[in-house]
Design a protein around this nucleic acid. Structure first.
Lengths: 175, 175, 175, 175
DNA sequence: CATGAATGAGAGTTCATTCAT
DNA sequence: CATGAATGAACTCTCATTCAT
């Protein structure tokens, strides 16, 4: 009934465990591939019990999904910054900087990029969810951009967002 | 009792079965990945029993290996033709044509290339075997080239062969 | 390509394995309940490997389902014989003999009856399938009975079948 | 430091929690069976943490046991009232009223009765404990009855008690 | 007293592999 | 040569139970 003040402590500890699992799992997935990585191996390397993975992510696919969402997010944040830092730059410059951010990300994460792409494009049902996630974020950004005058208002956010998401992925693939 | 003329027929049929398995397996490996493809699925699609796969390739890795050897071979044949068709071309031209062949192969087989690389470059113990196979072929070719005067005789075939094999793979990766 | 004459032998052996599993599983389910019975236990008692259960029945529920279908079938066969042996008996006599068969079955299988009912009525998704199976069989029988003049033609087979199936179960429950 | 008047409040709250757990658990056990009911589900429906169940009942079997004891008790109380209200009724009348009470209970709790029987009669080690509990209570009652002249003194309480307990259960089974 | 994140033994299930036919 | 029922080690996932807070 009366939650003691240990709640923030517990939540922090839970988040730590979660992040530890995400990091360890990403390393292993990149190193040996998703299917060849055993959940028991992830747990051991993260210093927790197998059950903890299922407590946090539901199943192995859920863990993959969480990792991809995280990565998609970190790519997205970089691209978004470009548009926020240069609200009045001409479109052609924005496009160039957008591409540069993605290429820079790919170069900084040479090991991770192919893994993300492998799953983001086909292969696994989780892929579609990730693209949808990217699209949603970009769409929201476009709407805000339109509201604040950065984007033209005669473009349809859903279409533009899907186009940009795919462009980002294709860029990563062929960088 | 047993008609001798049956043997060639049998052997032809055996080769047919083998090729059918190689083709079906490649399709499935490219589509869903090696680990996610079931041997039973391959057998079913090829219209044979599971046991037949083991008869021809020993185990699942043997099947993967045979596929990769086949692919490496087909890439190698193309490159070899360049050197054979232009026995006296200047080295810089040969190098350019070499690269062009590889890129052309990658473009003709966009689906297959990433799969080959995934396994040739790491991930799976079969990869090392494949590179060794490529190296052996190239080395042999270099020796013959030296014998017939196409190659300079002051280069060490083993080293040169390994260099070329890796160059081919790197080219495919970044085409 | 040329299936040897060992096919009937194999099929017979497969059927034997299947029946052995059905029998052993029924015993264990009756003794300790479905959920408390381990698949490994069934396999061991039947003298096969765990995998064999999954080869034959897909999963544990599939095994339960197959058992219930078998039992429903054996009850149904008895009841059907009543109607076939006395094609021209007055309806009230048929109804009495119908009930007697069910009660006799319940008495002969005192251990099994409660188990069947537990699952045929609610609790488990497999239950609905079993009732549907009973209904289908009875419905077919009614149609044939109508065609050959045993049943009146002004009753709707689907409704009558569902009514009879539930009557049979209720009889078993309260015998 | 710690107000004494807090204790009764705490204890009342504790009893509330306990009863809430007993009620919620009975509902779920009846609905889905003991083994298919998760402790986490019980806790959630009762609005407490999982740990609380273990605080009150030791383990899941302890919870089942407490429920069965409760139910056995409520059946027993009814039967006892018969003998208390009619201290000098002839034995044949007492027996009839005894049976009527049990049947009435079964009718009032149609959902619960099969569940109680399932566990009281076999299946689970807890069953034996419950029967022992019933026997003890009945035995004690018989002794008191003998002391106050209601029962004849030439019957052996332990045997009579066990006979009555089983009669009650058999009645419930075939009501 | 109560909590709920963490645990890990153990259950169901998969699937590469075998071998009698 | 080919078959496919059978295998069982190994995997994913579950959930009753614990204990630091």
């Amino acid at each position: 009934m009366e939650p003691q003040t240990d709640l923030p402590v517990r939540q922090a500890s839970k988040l730590e465990t979660r992040n530890s699992l995400l990091q360890v799992a990403l390393e292993l997935f990149v190193e040996k591939g998703f299917e060849a990585t055993r959940t028991s191996e992830i747990a051991q390397k993260a210093g927790v019990a197998v059950g903890t993975i299922y407590l946090h992510f539901g199943d192995k696919d859920g863990l993959l999904s969480a990792i991809l969402v995280n990565l998609a997010d970190s790519i997205y944040i970089r691209v978004k910054e470009v548009y926020e830092k240069h609200p009045s730059a001409p479109p052609e410059n924005l496009a160039r900087m957008h591409i540069e951010q993605i290429i820079q990300y790919a170069e900084e994460n040479q090991k991770i990029a192919p893994f993300v792409l492998d799953y983001a494009l086909s292969r696994h049902p989780v892929g579609a969810k990730i693209i949808d996630f990217m699209v949603c974020q970009i769409e929201e950004n476009i709407r805000q951009g339109q509201a604040s005058g950065i984007y033209r208002t005669d473009i349809l956010p859903p279409l533009a967002a899907r186009a940009e998401a795919h462009m980002n992925l294709v860029l990563l693939t062929h960088w």
